[in-house]
Design a protein around this nucleic acid. Structure first.
Length: 280
DNA sequence: ACGCGTGCCTGTTGGC
DNA sequence: TGCCAACAGGCACGCG
C-alpha cells in the first residue's frame, strides 16, 4: 500500500526508465481507471515525458505534447495496489493491467509502461495545468511533511479535535501519511492513537511531527515497506517492513518493553499500539 | 463546518 | 477439505 515513501521510491525508480521518452500510444483497458481527461488522450500521442514527480501520495508526470506549448499532466493515485512496470515490446496485458503507455522504442530498453491495479481503487487523471484548481482533493492537500517545520505541523495537528491518528491520516492536515507510518510515528512519539489531538501538549505534538518526518525519511532510505506485494518500478521490494515496531505486530511483544501489543480500530483503520510505551 | 460511518474493490486468511 | 466471512485501507460521499 503505497504511502509517501513508497510513491517516492516509485518516482525514483520509474523516472530513469521513462524520462524524456515519447509516448507513442495509450490503451485504457478499464475506463474507470482514467478518472478524467478522456478528451485529451489523443494529445498524448507523440508527447514527451518531461518530468516525473510526487506530491503527497500522488505520482505525477508532466508531458509536453508534440508541437504544443501547453503541458499535460498525468496524476496517478495508486491507493492500495497501484503499480508501474515497464515491460518488453510485445508484452500482453497482465490480469490487473488497467492502462498501457507505449513508449518510443530504444535499443535494449523495454517500452510498454503498464499501470496495474488489482483492487481498482487507484486512478489516473489526465489534465491541463488549469484543471488542478478544479480538483478538490488536490486543492485541499496539506503541506508536505518533509518540507515543513515540525512546529508548523504540530500546530496544524493541535487545531483538530479528533483522535490524533485520524488527524495525521487526514491529507488536508499533512499530506502523505497512511496507516503504516501513522502507527509507527505514534509509537515512536509515545502517544496513544486514540488521544484527542487538541488535548496533547504542543511539545509532544512537535515530537510526533519530528517522528513522522524521521520515519518517512528512514523508509525512503530503505526503499519503502513491502507489505504483501508492493514493488517499485523496477520490481524490487522495500525493506522498511523489517523495521516496524507496531504495524502488523498486534499480539506480539513490544520491541521496547515486551508488553503484548494491543489492536484496535481507530479512524476506521486497523491500529496497533503499546499500552505501556504510549500514553494519552 | 466538522466529524463520523459506509461503499468501493479483489485476493488472502482463518474459522467452522 | 471446502466454503464463506472477515479483513486489508485511502478517499468520496452522505448524514447529523
Amino acid at each position: 500500500m503505497p504511502e509517501l515513501p513508497e510513491v517516492e521510491t516509485i518516482v525514483r525508480t520509474l523516472s530513469p526508465q521513462v524520462l524524456d521518452r515519447k509516448i507513442e500510444d495509450v490503451a485504457v483497458l478499464r475506463g474507470k481507471s482514467l478518472a478524467c481527461g478522456e478528451a485529451l488522450l489523443p494529445k498524448l500521442k507523440g508527447a514527451r515525458i518531461n518530468k516525473v514527480y510526487r506530491r503527497a501520495k500522488l505520482l505525477l508526470m508532466e508531458v509536453i505534447p508534440k508541437g504544443a506549448k501547453k503541458a499535460l499532466f498525468l496524476a496517478f493515485h495508486l491507493k492500495m495496489t497501484g503499480k508501474f512496470f515497464v515491460h518488453p515490446d510485445g508484452s500482453e496485458p497482465l490480469k490487473h493491467t488497467k492502462i498501457i503507455f507505449d513508449l518510443e522504442k530504444l535499443p535494449g530498453e523495454p517500452s510498454r509502461l503498464f499501470f496495474d491495479d488489482m483492487r481498482m481503487f487507484g486512478y489516473c487523471r489526465l489534465m491541463e495545468a488549469k484543471d488542478f484548481s478544479d480538483w478538490p482533493f488536490w486543492v485541499k492537500l496539506g503541506p508536505e511533511p518533509l518540507e515543513t517545520p515540525a512546529r508548523e505541523l504540530a500546530e496544524r495537528i493541535a487545531a483538530r479535535k479528533s483522535a490524533v491518528k485520524a488527524v495525521i491520516l487526514d491529507q488536508t492536515v499533512l499530506a502523505g501519511v497512511g496507516n503504516i507510518y501513522a502507527d509507527e510515528a505514534l509509537f515512536k512519539a509515545g502517544i496513544l492513537p486514540t488521544a484527542k489531538a487538541a488535548s496533547i501538549s504542543l511539545p509532544r505534538l512537535e515530537k510526533l511531527a519530528g517522528e513522522i518526518k524521521a520515519v518517512l525519511l528512514e523508509s525512503i532510505e530503505q526503499c519503502g515497506s513491502s507489505i504483501r506485494d508492493y514493488r517499485d518500478a523496477q520490481g524490487n521490494a522495500g525493506a522498511f517492513q523489517n523495521s516496524f515496531y507496531v504495524y502488523g505486530r498486534g499480539g506480539q511483544a513490544c520491541k521496547v518493553c515486551g508488553t503484548t501489543l494491543a489492536t484496535a480500530r481507530v479512524a476506521g483503520r486497523g491500529t496497533v499500539y503499546c499500552s505501556k510505551c504510549q500514553t494519552g
